[in-house]
Amino acid sequence: MKFLRTRWLEVTALLVVGAAVVRGVTVAADVTQGDVQRIMYVHVPAAWLAFLAFGVTVVGSVAWLRSGKPHWDRLAASSAEIGVVFTGLAIVAGMIWARPVWGQFWTWEPRLVTTALLFFIYLGYLALRRAVIDPVERARRSAIMGIVAFIQIPIVYQSVNWWRSLHQTSSRNSIDAPLRVTLWLAVLAFTFAYAVMLRRRLELSLLEAALELRQLEGSQAVAGAAVVAPSLEKAGHHG
């Protein structure tokens, strides 16, 4: 019982993901595409999760700039990492689907191009985080980058969309009701999975922050507080 109390989120996520997978492989096949369409039940939720994750990152970024509370920065960082993983997985699953259906792994479809760029944009964001050592500096710089990236995403998408529409119109086909239920179940399942991952990643961030602080204290004790330059940060010279 204690296990259930502490791990209820994990257990629920596992159950819902399991149900979604079972439903995904057993539901009647799509009329036009056949069984390959089942890939959509993991591909679409993975892509959705990536967008959700990057949305949470920008919320964390803005909140950090407003409040300066470290947990907002940890939220932004954790969510971005999950988002990058899922963008990568969504791209791979999409390519596996495209191979039999479109006859090739890659096409210059707007959503595909945008998703690939998203992957690299947030890879850059994570690289920036790794590059800055000071925790406050890291939070500030990555918050700015998180916001810049997020504002640019709709423009990137729109530009690719326009560029594509010049050459050909993208074909959209609607899906049947039972299939839509399956898709929504899968989206719900992946959102639970996101919650589990985010909680774990936040736990890790907290530990890493504590570790950083301890190491910083250790290094300062050797040098002595007297050699640390006075902080001009909030002095308001530039008001």
Binding site: I121, I155, S159, V160
Partner: peptide
């Protein structure tokens, strides 16, 4: 790495 993907709309435009 930070600039190139964000510069795509400029390239397309």
């Amino acid at each position: 790495l930070l600039i190139a993907p964000l510069a795509l709309p400029l390239l397309l435009g």
